[in-house]
Amino acid sequence: MEYILSFVLLMIGLYCVATKKNIVKIVIGLNIMEYAINLFLILIGYRRGGIAPIRTPDMSLAYFLRYSVDPLPQALVVTSIVIGFGVLALSVSMAIRIYERYGTFDINEIKRLKG
């Protein structure tokens, strides 16, 4: 059920990217897709009743192995979030440049102005 709901979120982002005309809306759709994928990766690694993958001195190894959630998706998603911010900054700067060149955010108008 959780997987399906995060897939629905991904599809909403895809719908926003595919059908909207405004560049800012397209950037927002990309952002929503990124959230959905990060959340899906973390959902895969969750263990019911688990604990965070951080050792404390008074925790035995057997208890830690038994209850800790999967640390590998977490390590990958940390880099993914920062890369997502880089992509967002690049796309926003492209949007500003397009606005300066054409005076609009509408991609149909941009196509028409190009001739």
Partner: peptide
Amino acid sequence: IILSVTRV
């Protein structure tokens, strides 16, 4: 800074 000093 790059994004905020640019202004249309």
